Each structure stands twice: as C-alpha cells, then as structure tokens.
Amino acid sequence: MKKLIAAASLCVASFSVQAAITVPKYDVNAGKQIAETVCAACHGLTGESIVPAQPNLGGQNVKYLYKQLVNFKAGYRKNGIMQSQVANLSQQDLANVAGYYASQQPWGVGYGNPATSQEASKLFLGGDKKRGVIACAGCHGPDAKGNIFAAFPRLGGQHSEYISTQLKLFRAAGRDDDISSDDQKRVNDAAKEGEKGMMQTVASRLSDRDIRILSEYISAVH
C-alpha cells in the first residue's frame, strides 16, 4: 500500500493539468461516420485493432482519447500517419470520434507471459525502490483501468507491442520530441518547463527487459 501511495504522489503534479481537459459535447453517431472513413482501417470500427502496432481504442477514457487527437493535430504528439489523418478534422470532429470510441465495448485481453508474470506484477503494482522505478498502478490503477478524472489511459489488455513502443518513445522523450512551449498544459506528457514529463521520468528508469515483461503483463491484465 505504501508503494502505491508513493507512486500515486508522482501523479498528483499532473492531475490539475490532465483534469482540466474539457471534452466538447460530442455526437457519437457523427463520430462513427468519421471512424468508418478515417480510423477503422487501423483501429477497427469498434476500436479493437487487429494490428499489434496499432492501439485498441474501444472503451478507452474519452478525455485521454480527445487529448491525444488534439495533441496529434497540434503537433505536440508526433506520428506522421496520425497527424495526416486528423489534419482536416475540426475540434468538434475530434470530440465526436473520441466520444464514439469511448462508447464502445472495451477490447479483449491478451495472453501475457506466464514465465515473467509474477516479476512483472511486482513491478507494475509496487515498482522497484532500489532503482527508483515508480509503480505503474499508482496512476493507471492496480487493475490497469486508468483514471477517468485525470485522463490517464486504460492499459489492461492493450497490445503488448504497442505498449512497448510507447514506453520506449517516452524513455527517449519521443512522444513530444523537440517541443518547447510556454503553454505546458498542451504538451503531451505534462510537465513544468525544463523538466521531464511524468511518463518520461518513469520510463527513463526502465530497462529493455522491464519494458518487455511489463508490456506482456499489462496485455493480459483484466
């Protein structure tokens, strides 16, 4: 419990930033129409991707989805495909799509790796004090369902390949590379100016093996 409290304290600094995200009133049916033509090829019409490199979106936190779409459009999160896909969408369109996918049934569960699940579980739930690794559960919850209020995403059952890639990008500061802005509230990994973002800080202490076993474990959490 003490480890979870300590991990949760790291999240507090970004709560005010994340909680301030306001999603415009959205139209699920309008979002579905956009998803059919723009998003479904990669993420599936119901938000369950058949490509491990592309994230599942169905049932995800609407604040998180909206924030990511806004950040892609603004360039605070960089991905050539995503930036081109949202380039012609309005803020209302982004809200509609986020609302649509959030309204879908959560995705299924992966299989994980039994050989490393116990070790990964300890890291996910309790971190590693000796190495300064913060527990993932402090922000994403012990059941990996995320935090709706703080816009922290649901992770449980997500593709392990996708999770691994994102952790490595955070570790390399690639999720918001070359970002310098006075408006830190809009940076994808929220932080004070001149400091590492929360996820960059956490990921910087993870080894390749940590990332692998955590990704496999998270993909099987339900």
Rank of each mutant, 00 (worst) to 15 (best):
K2D: 12
I5R: 04
A6Q: 14
A7T: 06
L10R: 13
L10Y: 12
S14Y: 04
F15L: 07
V17S: 14
Q18D: 09
Q18E: 14
I21S: 07
I21D: 05
K25L: 09
K25I: 05
D27I: 02
N29M: 11
N29V: 00
G31Y: 02
T37V: 08
T37R: 13
A40R: 11
P55C: 01
Q60P: 13
Q60T: 12
Q60C: 05
K67F: 11
V70H: 09
N71P: 06
Y76R: 08
R77H: 09
N79Y: 12
M82G: 14
N88G: 05
D93S: 14
L94Q: 01
V97F: 01
G99L: 01
G99S: 06
Y100F: 14
Y101M: 06
N113F: 11
N113I: 05
A115K: 15
T116P: 11
Q118D: 03
E119D: 09
L123Q: 02
C136K: 10
A137H: 01
C139L: 08
H140L: 02
N147G: 02
N147E: 01
G157R: 07
H159R: 00
S160V: 04
Y162W: 11
S164D: 03
Q166L: 00
K168H: 14
R171G: 06
G174Y: 06
S181I: 06
D182E: 07
D183G: 00
R186W: 02
N188E: 14
A191P: 10
M199A: 10
R205W: 01
D208F: 00
E216C: 01
